[in-house]
Computed example of a mutant assay.
Amino acid sequence: MASSSNSHDRLTHLKEFGTDPGSLHADIYIPKNFSKNGPLVVVLHGSTQSAEGYDRGSGWSELADECGIALLYPGQRKTNNPLSSFNWFKSGDTRRGSGEPLSIFHMIEQVVEDHAIDPLRVFITGMSSGGAMASVMLATYPEVFAGGAIIAGLPYRSADNLMEAMVRMKGVGGPSDSRLNSLVRGASTFEGPWPTISVWHGGSDSTVDNANADAIVRQWQAIHQVEGPPTRVEDVVGFPRQVWCNEAGQEVIEEYIIGGMGHGTPIMARGEKGLGEEDKYMLEVGISSTRHIAYFWGLT
């Protein structure tokens, strides 16, 4: 099993960063082997989770030590949301220039400046409400990110209030594909190149139905001009990986549906390449989403 010693006290508080209209908390982890112009991964925890707990479960700081990656963990406060969920469905927290997205943007700006991060190698990932907020960030600040990974999440602006959010989580209703696409295009004035998209979801997720994973893929297909069936489907340690490549042959979207898995982040804590630690929403299924996402982004 991968070592998880001290991972709960690995993160340090980011005391100051721009304005904080979303009233969020921020932690960072800069490994000893981080070098100038290295990459940054922004990691968003799920409901009822903390930055420390998500780091311990996912193994991101262990991988950071291996590969020299800086990490930023925005954190929700219970005063904003009793479940510590990011407010991915509230209109004030889904627009560029306001609320939680602006807070996260300012955190990123601060860390990029403080640690001489390569601005072309900033990535974002999240699970559940954190995955849905990763969708928000990728749509509202696409120029900031080279890639994003959405785990057990939902498409950008698929819901505009709590009631809609509950329904969308069950996989019911939601905007049309063309509307999903235009919501991303309308979220900023950016015209590309767009961040690559990695989508992970449990095939038996009863909290956020995996119809949402397919909707996220469709939200980004027209933007990347890769409509239609995947370019190829391949087997990765026993799980199907669907890949969409653009005209230049670059992989721009990937999707993993982990058969039989419920709501959470897929991990592989055991073995030589093991990362993380099993927990309530950290599900031991024999594949490390953390390691494969980092590989997709060219970080390993």
Rank of each mutant, 00 (worst) to 15 (best):
Q221K: 06
M268I: 08
W194K: 06
V237H: 04
N33K: 09
A64Y: 08
E52K: 15
Q242H: 12
H25D: 15
S35G: 04
A215S: 13
D93V: 14
K15W: 11
I287S: 03
V199W: 03
L14G: 07
H45V: 01
R56N: 05
D118E: 08
G238H: 10
G260W: 10
A222Q: 13
L299S: 04
Y156I: 14
M163Q: 14
L44E: 09
N81D: 14
M163L: 14
E113N: 08
G271A: 04
T94Y: 03
V285N: 00
S7T: 15
V208H: 03
D160T: 13
D177W: 00
E52L: 09
D214V: 15
W244A: 03
E143W: 10
P266Y: 07
S129A: 15
G238M: 13
R95P: 02
Q250P: 00
D235S: 04
F86D: 02
L275P: 08
I117R: 06
G228S: 08
R241G: 01
S50N: 03
F190K: 02
A139C: 05
M166Q: 13
W297E: 03
I293F: 02
R232T: 13
R77C: 05
S47P: 05
H8V: 10
L154R: 12
R218E: 15
Q242V: 01
G46P: 00
T231K: 01
A26L: 04
N210I: 05
L11C: 06
G131N: 07
E62W: 06
T196Y: 03
S35W: 00
G173W: 01
Y54G: 08
A132E: 13
G126I: 11
Q219R: 06
H13F: 12
E143S: 10
L63N: 02
P195I: 13
E113R: 12
V199A: 06
F86N: 12
G57C: 14
H224D: 02
L275K: 12
T19D: 10
V226Y: 04
G276N: 12
I151M: 11
D93P: 03
G92V: 10
G92Q: 12
E143I: 05
I257A: 03
M163R: 11
L11M: 01
V236W: 15
I216D: 09
V112Y: 00
L138F: 02
A146W: 01
Y295H: 14
H201C: 09
G286Q: 02
M169A: 07
A165C: 05
L183N: 10
G147K: 09
G260I: 09
E227Y: 07
Q110P: 01
F86E: 03
Q49I: 00
R56H: 08
P230A: 13
P101C: 12
E254K: 11
Q219H: 00
